[in-house]
Design a protein around this nucleic acid. Structure first.
Lengths: 351, 351
DNA sequence: AGTGTGAACTAGAGCGCTTCAGAACGTCCA
DNA sequence: TGGACGTTCTGAAGCGCTCTAGTTCACACT
């Protein structure tokens, strides 16, 4: 019943008749020993069933774990349903993976972030945070551990690298273009202001205390143009279904809004659907704009006018920053990426 | 420039005036010391800025890393675009997170799986594999390390736990229902048979050597009913866009198929779109069925007839199995989950 | 023969923690 | 009063590896 103990560096060293250091070198610094010996070591290792230095022990000795942690603001299925997030994550993953780093996922649970215990026990030597509430306990847990951190779209935290996008400016841009083309009655469909699962109209108190920076900025960007009394509908998540419901609610007001400003493309897709549900047409009866410019925006029906942000680039930059921090680099100035308005067929002047 | 060294267990032990073992117990076995002392230790730790035992060192000492690895067959953004995968992953993540385990993601690269080096260096003490090609090098790498493994929807591997679904039976079920209602001309839209990025019609050689088990089973389930000469279109990934293109190609044949059998809901959504693109109607002109029953299937236009498989349950089961293996449990018999046909409005008898 | 040099290899001290076998010190009961 | 027992805490041996500061040796140069 007692399976044979797994071979270690020592086992191999003993079998070959060299010191442990030499075997270690065979794996990590092939230039430190003769090719012949290395060859012999590798062969012996193979016959012994030794698969290379244990990653944990190696991490302990080197004091880094070759892993970057990624903290999400929501559960995995919700996160994965979000194309924008996926693209960012993919950019990040390909950057770090190229450098032999793993990705440790910490999906959100309590209060919109991973459980602090999860963070405390995670083996990662840098963590990147994305779309967490500003006061997520997980953020504190990372600091407590003294791990370097890069945040994406998060408010400035001391001693933290950061990549960001001008959400306020982007939203303003979209709203202004609609305003300039003559629209005066707007509705706004946004994703969560707070991590409490609320769906429904937004009150001004709720608005004032928004705990997600991105939400706050996009919302204020829109409202800055359309006026603070614009009706806003909050969806707990950025999903097509929720957006559809929200848009339907907004469109049932009278007089009906002539334009719907959405905090994400996903919500906008739902809004498109809602307009159809009501037997109206986009953009003839209602204009719709999104935010993100995910790939599907271009193929929506009609193609969606939206604010483009360089999603993959955002992930890549975050990855680079993480890698730099790992090398002992300092956080430095936030990396700021440009946004732009992509006009497609979902917007037009009002009738 | 030399920042103060991070505090360790020893630092705290020294400061409180107790042995290191006691501080360790304070964290791991509170019942082993008096409440008062524990309290004192925790306080001192806090003022010293000690965030708890280092996870890596702990892992080395305990010989397990509290992490489960997850090998993906594709890159992250492709994975994340896949609702079915997301739900599975979410089920898995919540199961293992509840037991204080992290999820280490290994995104696919070469030949449809993670790079073997990634696997070799990953700190995980069990790994679960999902939708890898049957001959992925990553699979071999896991074995070489002697890590326990659970596979989802993968062929039986010796000494490996396994959760599976009756893909063949499910596909057969869907095809048979169409056949029984009178359909005789079919088209099949499938995702990858091989990890080579191919898009286009499927030749019989390609079909014969299919390297993804799931693809093979669903395809054969369909063809078992519709006949081996049914035209099959392969999409490199399970995406709406690719499905749309594939369906369009299939529908341009004459005589036109009266029913489209898709290997996933995502592909089916594209097929729905393609039918519309051609000015035809679902189900009046063309019936469409999907596979998976992702949440969006119910809200598709029209609601999609599809083969339901318990996705979240699949993830949860995989998580349980992984946890069991971690406890030294034996793989045991494969867990088999039931599938069923969900009839909605995208299918009807042919005209 | 003496010295310098570079290549090949090794000894041993950690990395920060867990854990097991005690030691020390009451308490309790016969 | 004394031993059996429980509780609380400690010492020290690892866990499997890396890495610095060597040692050894062959060879070339003076």
């Amino acid at each position: 019943m007692d399976r044979p103990r797994k071979p270690t560096l020592d086992t191999v060293a003993g079998a070959v008749g060299v010191s442990r250091a030499t075997v270690s070198n065979a794996y990590n610094r092939p230039d430190q020993l003769s090719a012949a010996l290395r060859e012999r070591i590798m062969e012996t290792a193979a016959t012994l069933g030794y698969a290379g230095p244990d990653p944990v022990a190696r991490s302990l000795a080197t004091r880094h774990s070759a892993a970057v942690g990624f903290m999400l603001g929501q559960g995995l299925s919700a996160s994965f349903a979000d194309a924008a997030l996926s693209i960012v994550l993919d950019g990040l993953a390909s950057t770090v993976d190229g450098h032999d780093h793993c990705l440790v996922l910490m999906p959100g649970r309590d209060r919109g972030g991973p459980r602090p215990e999860t963070v405390t026990r995670a083996q990662a030597d840098v963590v990147v945070a994305y779309s967490l509430p500003d006061d997520a306990p997980a953020l504190a847990a990372v600091r407590a551990r003294g791990l370097p951190m890069v945040v994406i779209d998060q408010p400035v935290l001391p001693d933290t690298a950061r990549v960001e996008v001008d959400d306020f400016g982007g939203a303003r841009l979209a709203a202004a273009s609609l305003w300039d083309s003559g629209h005066r009655r707007f509705g706004v469909v946004t994703f969560a202001l707070h991590p409490d699962g609320h769906n429904g109209p937004v009150t001004s108190e709720r608005l004032a205390s928004t705990s997600f920076r991105v939400t706050r900025d996009r919302l204020h960007g829109y409202l800055d143009v359309t006026g603070a009394d614009t009706p806003v509908w909050e969806c707990a998540r950025s999903s097509r279904e929720l957006g559809r419901a929200g848009a339907r609610a907004l469109l049932s007001a009278s007089p009906r809004p002539t334009a719907l400003l959405c905090a994400s493309d996903e919500l906008a897709f739902g809004a498109l659907q809602a307009v159809r549900d009501l037997g109206l047409r986009v953009p003839a009866d209602v204009s719709v704009v999104g935010f993100d410019d995910v790939p599907a925006a271009e193929h929506a029906d009609p193609p969606l006018t939206t604010v483009r942000q360089p999603l993959a680039e955002k992930g890549r930059q975050a990855g680079e920053l993480a890698l730099r921090l790992l090398d002992g680099g300092r956080p430095g100035e936030p990396t700021r990426l440009a946004v732009s308005l992509v006009s497609r067929d979902s917007t037009a002047p009002p009738k």
